[in-house]
Design a binder for these strands. Structure first.
Lengths: 121, 121
DNA sequence: TGTATATGTGAACACATGCTCATATACTCA
DNA sequence: TGAGTATATGAGCATGTGTTCACATATACA
């Protein structure tokens, strides 16, 4: 029944292993999760943002610090921190005129660790 | 000494927490790793590629299967599989005219798992 | 209140990227 | 060998994105 539905949706023309397509459909990740996962990985997929996150693993830093470290403009850093904030990867703490940024949780570090394992094999 | 060097490199103008910048420099990830990590995350950061990887978690599939499942052209799938191959995220096995694609190792699944944890909190 | 510092943000531009289309390659079978 | 199927790939186009520049906001301090 389910199989029939999917078959008709696919026009049944070039599908070689129908049962695998059906299975893939059943195990499909919800669209919302796909979008959010993609956004997360894409956000971590920019060298500038990646360096920012890596630096924040050690200690919280202000925009000036990060800009000096990366040798890029403070505006560029601020733009990227905005992206990281939206994705809930970093959070900030104000102390006077200075905003200290930090990683929100351990997930970023763990993702780094896993990804480095993949690269170094 | 080290501190002095870094200070001069930074022009010493707007750096607020010099010791943190120095520390960040010491803990810096090698450029090659940064580039490869970014490439890896960026590659996983596209919805189409992400769906492909997710589907391959379950079973190996050929290009036709994936195209049918995603409801996109086989050419688009082939282009994306090429990217995934370059990043060593998928590998293929030929059986006659058909190429079966699979995940290379468990890293992708683990990355998904961690990333989903981050999203769902 | 005025000035300086720290950060945020919109517009614009240069560049990267995913898809489509046409075509090429690789394999099967008659 | 020729036709058909499965996949790969280059060119071109539309869209997305990171940076810069100019300016806005927020806080500190005199």
């Amino acid at each position: 029944m389910q199989l029939q539905t999917v078959e008709s949706e696919l026009c049944g023309c070039r599908c070689i292993h129908e049962e695998r397509v059906v299975q893939a459909n059943l195990n499909q990740l919800p669209d919302i999760d796909v979008e959010e996962l993609a956004r997360l990985f894409k956000t971590m997929g920019d060298p500038t943002r990646l360096r920012i996150l890596w630096a924040l693993k050690e200690s919280e830093m202000c925009v000036c610090d990060i800009a000096a470290f990366l040798k890029v403009s403070e505006s560029a850093v601020s733009h990227q921190l905005r992206n990281l904030r939206i994705l809930t990867l970093v959070a900030s703490r104000r102390e006077g005129a200075i905003l200290y940024y930090r990683l929100v949780d351990e997930h970023v570090s763990l993702l780094f660790q896993l990804a480095l394992e993949h690269i170094h094999e």
